[in-house]
Amino acid sequence: MVQSLNRLKESASQTAGPYVHIGLTPNFAEIGGVYPEDLGTQMAGEKAKGERIVITGHIFDGTGTPLKDALVEIWQADADGLYNSPSETRGSADPNFSGWGRCPTDMTSGEFRFETIKPGRVPFKDGRMMAPHVTFWIVARGINIGLQTRMYFGDEEAANAEDPVLARIEHRVRVPTLIADKVDGGYRFDIHLQGEKETVFFDI
């Protein structure tokens, strides 16, 4: 026998199920009067610094059908590349920008939509700068553990080319699955859960 490390095991994940909206976006689920507004609806206050953008997209299953019962959360740095988090040690983030957003996919169209600002660059562990990116976390009925991915920006070709995370993707044909298309007023980022166009998901 040896000593024990005295570690606990992380609580196992379970699917968020089809009624995730009841708990996380009750106003969207038409359960009014409990919370004044759904959390994560507004990311940027009027005085938030930076370029305002809208990120839209769909999440597709293995048949190409959009998920109409998924929930997406995003987490990103402010315009100067600082996170609005107590664990941010490089300075204070823009107080008018939360950095965190939550959006259910539309029950009819399946679209998600975030009104946010374009993030600045943040460093990788070795000090190299990562390209501007937004971290995504996706849950839904049929997804047993939240899927983590990143969205990069299609108009940041130079920064994307030197991004240390994108550089880790062995199958280069999969890199474009993480890069959003610049469209009128913002960016379009479609996520494919499986199949030929499958998005790169992270164990991070």
């Binding site: 943040v122 899927l147 880790r168 164990d203």
Partner: peptide, 19 residues
Amino acid sequence: SVLRSPQKALLSLDNTISE
């Protein structure tokens, strides 16, 4: 879960400040 699970391996990365 059949049509909503990735078929390719997850890409492992050490945490960055983003996580």
